[in-house]
């Protein structure tokens, strides 16, 4: 277990010096109990311990925004949160937003509008857009821009992603 926890996220000697504890997280309405390093971050817990690899790890320092997940409905960066810290929260990853295997309106809109290229930032963009659309009935252009500003995309130039969100809003009216 320690070997698994000692992936590339911190130096092996540092991780081996961490206490291994049982951490129980509620991810996508499924309870996962794993014995992991006490200081393991949520992003590594999700990917390495739960095999939910939709959540991406880019910089692992809170700069790229690719590891966004919803914690109690709000997007946060999973690489900056210790897994043990969110034991009492409801965590939603990209795997948990579809209902009965059907794409959500924002996912469909992103496919239709060519808002996906390499796809690395897509899970984060979808989760951030989901939060925006859940909290605002008709978000303004500025709010949409702010929503995508926390995730770095090097392919699309953001325009198509913004358009995909706008189309969902238009469809609501």
């Amino acid at each position: 277990m320690v070997g698994k926890a000692a992936g590339n996220w911190r130096f092996k000697d540092k991780v081996l010096n961490d206490l291994v504890e049982v951490v129980t997280l509620n991810i996508n309405s499924v309870s996962y109990s794993r014995a992991v390093s006490s200081l393991m971050t949520l992003s590594h817990f999700i990917r390495e311990e739960c095999d939910l690899t939709g959540t991406k790890i880019g910089c692992d320092r809170g700069e790229c925004g690719c590891c966004s997940v919803l914690v109690d409905g709000k997007p946060i960066l999973a690489c900056l949160v210790l897994a043990k810290f969110v034991q009492d929260a409801e965590i939603t990853t990209i795997e948990g937003i579809s209902v009965d295997g059907q794409l959500t309106p924002i996912q469909e809109s992103m496919v239709e509008n060519g808002a996906i290229q390499c796809g690395f930032c897509t899970p984060s963009m979808v989760l951030n857009a989901t939060h925006l659309l859940n909290t605002h009935k008709a978000p303004s252009k500025n709010q949409i821009k702010k929503c995508v500003s926390g995730t770095i995309c090097r392919c699309t130039g953001y325009t198509k992603i913004e358009k995909a969100i706008e189309k969902v809003v238009e469809g609501r009216e």
């Binding site: 200081l39 809170g62 960066l77 690489c79 900056l80 949160v81 210790l82």
Partner: peptide, 21 residues
Amino acid sequence: IAGGSDVVPRMKDSKKNQGHM
């Protein structure tokens, strides 16, 4: 540690163990 957005990157970028949280 509170939000962790400052402490966690520092923990990762440190050569030495930062101790307990």
